[in-house]
């Protein structure tokens, strides 16, 4: 069985702070990490590798510095790593990104594609299902458990109020929740071994993809404007009796559609 894990290098958003003077994001010095859900997907792949002898490749799309994320994946136990990088890929929205990644997966071949549920920088959860559609394979999202049983994947699929146990034949794509799998640490042998490995670059010329479908040109959605979070912090405080206080709280929260 061949597994491809799609990972993304993301800024650690919990460390992003707002500059109180300029009201802009302070991104300098924010460390980059493997997106947590993607790391859990890699852990699923590595467990399948241990249990049924799978071959695990990792793929990411991004600038050259994303190689750091791939090297970490190799040091955790992945077999090969591929960096999708090309100026033609820049500016892609989720649909264009999924088109590019799907073209790479077609080239590499996979029985199982694993993704994280969503990335902490974009929070879209869209690229996984979109890759599955381009590959014309079934998807199972929000997976909290993935097992390989009698030639098929058995996946526990979470909803807000229930779960399903699904059985899906390969090839298929599964997106994984980070809460369910604790990723292993890099191990010394693999840290040494990854040093000898190549991270292979995949560029526009290596994949079959219509240039009209990728990059800014191939992205149906455009960012029109951005704004940082407005802090309407209350300076003055109200001194009220309990009854009036409760009423003010309820009215304010209702008005803001928070309750």
């Amino acid at each position: 069985m061949k597994i491809i894990v799609c990972i993304k290098q993301v800024p650690n958003t919990t460390e992003i702070k707002i500059d109180p003077v300029t009201n802009t994001l302070k991104r300098d010095g924010v460390p980059s990490i493997i997106n947590p859900d993607d790391k859990a997907a890699l852990e699923v792949a590595l467990q399948l590798k241990e249990n049924c002898g799978a071959h695990v490749d990792v793929v990411t799309m991004g600038p050259q510095q994303a190689e750091v994320a791939l090297r970490e994946a190799l040091a955790m136990g992945a077999d090969n790593a591929y960096l999708l990088t090309d100026r033609a890929f820049a500016g892609s929205d989720t649909l264009a990104t999924s088109t590019i990644i799907a073209s790479a997966i077609k080239k590499l071949g996979a029985d199982v594609v694993l993704c994280g549920r969503q990335a902490i920088d974009g929070d879209t959860a869209q690229v996984g299902p979109q890759i599955a559609e381009h590959l014309d394979i079934p998807q199972v999202t929000y997976a909290s458990q993935v097992d390989y049983v009698d030639g098929a994947l058995v996946v526990k699929r979470q909803f807000e109020d229930r779960y399903q146990t699904l059985r899906v034949a390969t090839p298929c794509l599964v997106t994984v929740l980070s809460s369910a799998y604790k990723p292993r640490y890099m191990n010394v042998a693999d840290i040494v071994a990854q040093d000898q490995k190549q991270v292979e670059a995949i560029t526009f010329n290596d994949v079959v993809v219509n240039p009209e479908d990728i990059g800014l040109k191939g992205s149906p959605t455009k960012v029109k404007s951005t704004a940082t979070k407005q802090f309407d912090k209350q300076i003055a405080t109200y001194e009220l009796g309990a009854e009036e206080a409760a009423k003010l709280i309820v009215d304010t929260l209702k008005q803001k559609h928070l309750i």
């Binding site: 958003t13 994001l25 929070d123 960012v223 029109k224 979070k229």
Partner: peptide
């Protein structure tokens, strides 16, 4: 919201 709620982006989809 994006970047963990630190940023708001307005998105359009003009031609599709």
């Amino acid at each position: 919201p994006a970047f963990g709620g630190n940023l708001f982006a307005t998105i359009v989809c003009p031609e599709h």
